[in-house]
Design a protein around this nucleic acid. Structure first.
Lengths: 344, 344
DNA sequence: GCCACGAACTTAAGCGCTTAAGCTTACGGG
DNA sequence: CCCGTAAGCTTAAGCGCTTAAGTTCGTGGC
């Protein structure tokens, strides 16, 4: 007994029931002037009674926006499960969107080409009013695309990569400095940074901040390149810790590698933080649950997402592009960092 | 020098350039008969050259679907970061959708009411062609809504809660039995299950399977109710392990609680798996990274999402409702389970 | 050589909104 | 008492597609 498709209720139905024209219904619903209080109330009551929502297709065809913003996740699907970042970010974006009855259109694009295509298609077919760009790389093709086609966009990343688009950045340099100073204050004189691939804008920024913070206090420092994966972190940590005079402070560009290093240190018979101290970027539940718990640089990703969405809505409304700064990540000190071992 | 909004290219532009009518362009684009090979090729070439994508609003107004399916995540935003499930599931859904150029509309609804409203609004305004329902509970209001308004939907959960809608289920009973048998084969004779709230359909199913599997082999067994949170798991584990003759096998309904139990056991001076063996549901990176790594019941969530989306597209295409079974979770044995301690 | 037929193509009628423009009506100032 | 004005409301013209219905034309059967 499938309930056969009930008749669609349209603006005309509401107009008829409320004894007025469709134009008045439209004006009333959108809170525009030109309708008496009486009529407005009557329209809203009828609309509620009939459970009418304007067909978004008709609305956007007629000139209103689509009421949707787009987000493309350019990561391998398998990696997404590992990264709590996106889910948090999405939740934040939604927190801004939901009260305005706007929607979030998602696409998981396996390749950069697919990602650019998705954005182009979305914009050309007017499915979205604007897009959010994360994980921006140097000379990002997406940035060029949105500039070319004139799609409203917000770059979540450093302004240097945003090519004049509105951007939202966090001060990774300051955060990096914090982490270095934390280790130095514990007496560490030899530290190594395990960095993300150089194509990410933030890598370059963190690298530079790491260099200058280390030089400022005159300690030995080194940077090892990784690909952020578990294995890459474990391998790099093992290599670095196996030399004759290994560093006593390790700084990782994400949480997964830091956890891998924990295991690597354990396997090499080194104690954390007795022999080696470990700091992670991207604080997460993982950092809290491992033993010892990890000292980490973290920030409120939920707030970041909400902030990014707000800026995008501004851009859609025609606000001029600008660079905005979000809160600086803070160091959450836990059990994985401690006084440097005494030099033998 | 903002490039002023370039002229929108429409089907009429393509028709003019290709020296044909808009109808032919439409037929050509949608691969319908009634167009010669020659014309079809010409149209597609022009469309490509002009970079034209049909306006989705116009298309869906004219009767085609919206080319979008909806997914509402009914969890507290803070919890979402903890649950790798959703991100994986979404990635799987996308794997099905992307090749068909379909979109995924997301909403994070903090409350059940907001969730039902979101679905109703989506369907009424025809923003989505169908919806995916996860985390289904007994007498779920969403299931009732979807039946009432006749929205195409797929329930990811047990058919018993799907009220005749198409559903996609995994055999949690068989998986539970596997876990119990694994512990029994290691000599455990007293096991406790730390269960999710009873409102979830799967809880009831797992409870029953746990009971019958335990009774079948005649071992002592007990079920403790939790709320799946870290704290709730830690508290429950502490309580259960503090009695005079504690169970030697613990089975948790998610990974987070199992990790919490690891810490609780450690704090009580119990070794894992020497004194107590631990098994988790929801295998994740977390299970692999903690020490000792956790034996867990896991399944391919990416595949589940892809499967669910496929079924939903079928339902949208008018295929009759049915219950489909996805792969049964498998037990991934790691370091947290071992031979039962010798009874003193 | 004529006609019926089907393939290829075009015309035009919506789909359900928004909004500019036109129309009423009531009202107050000159 | 007349008219300009403005508030309230309606009419109707799109927005860019899809598709039923109509038109044209080449082809083959008789």
């Amino acid at each position: 007994m499938t309930s056969t498709s009930r008749p669609r209720v349209t603006i005309a139905d509401v107009a008829r029931e409320a004894q007025t024209s469709t134009a008045s219904v439209s004006y009333a619903l959108n809170g525009r002037p030109g309708v008496s209080l009486d009529t407005r109330a009557r329209v809203l009551a009828v609309a509620a009674r009939l459970g009418w929502s304007p067909a978004s297709a008709a609305r956007s065809l007629a000139g209103a926006g689509s009421g949707t913003i787009g987000l493309v996740l350019a990561r391998d699907p398998r990696d997404l499960a590992v990264e709590p970042f996106y889910m948090q970010f999405i939740a934040g974006v939604e927190a801004t969107l939901a009260p305005r009855s706007m929607g979030l259109l998602l696409e998981v694009a396996p390749t950069a080409v697919a990602e650019v295509e998705a954005i182009r298609r979305w914009h050309m077919s007017r499915r979205v009013d604007g897009v959010l760009l994360t994980d921006v790389i140097a000379d990002d093709p997406r940035v060029e695309l949105v500039k070319e086609i004139g799609a409203p966009a917000v770059v979540v990343g450093d302004p240097s990569e945003a090519a004049g688009l509105t951007s939202l950045w966090t001060d990774d340099a300051a955060a990096t400095q914090q982490a270095v100073e934390h280790l130095v204050s514990l007496g560490h004189r030899r530290i190594t940074r395990f960095a993300a691939p150089g194509r990410y804008a933030y890598t370059v920024i963190r690298d530079a901040a790491f260099e200058s913070a280390s030089q400022a206090v005159g300690i030995e420092h080194d940077i090892v390149r990784t690909d952020l994966s578990l294995d890459s972190g474990a391998d790099a940590a093992r290599t670095v810790l196996s030399v004759s005079r290994p560093p006593s402070g390790l700084l990782f560009d994400n949480d997964v590698m830091a956890v891998a290093a924990l295991t690597a240190a354990h396997d090499l018979g080194l104690s954390v933080p007795g022999d080696v101290s470990i700091v992670a970027w991207d604080d997460s539940l993982l950092c809290q649950l491992v033993t010892p718990s990890l000292t980490a640089l973290g920030h409120d990703v939920l707030a970041l997402g909400a902030h990014a969405a707000r800026r995008l809505l501004d851009v859609i409304d025609g606000v001029e592009p600008a660079a905005f700064q979000d809160a600086t990540p803070t160091l959450r000190v836990r059990a994985s960092t401690g006084p440097a071992p005494v030099e033998t």
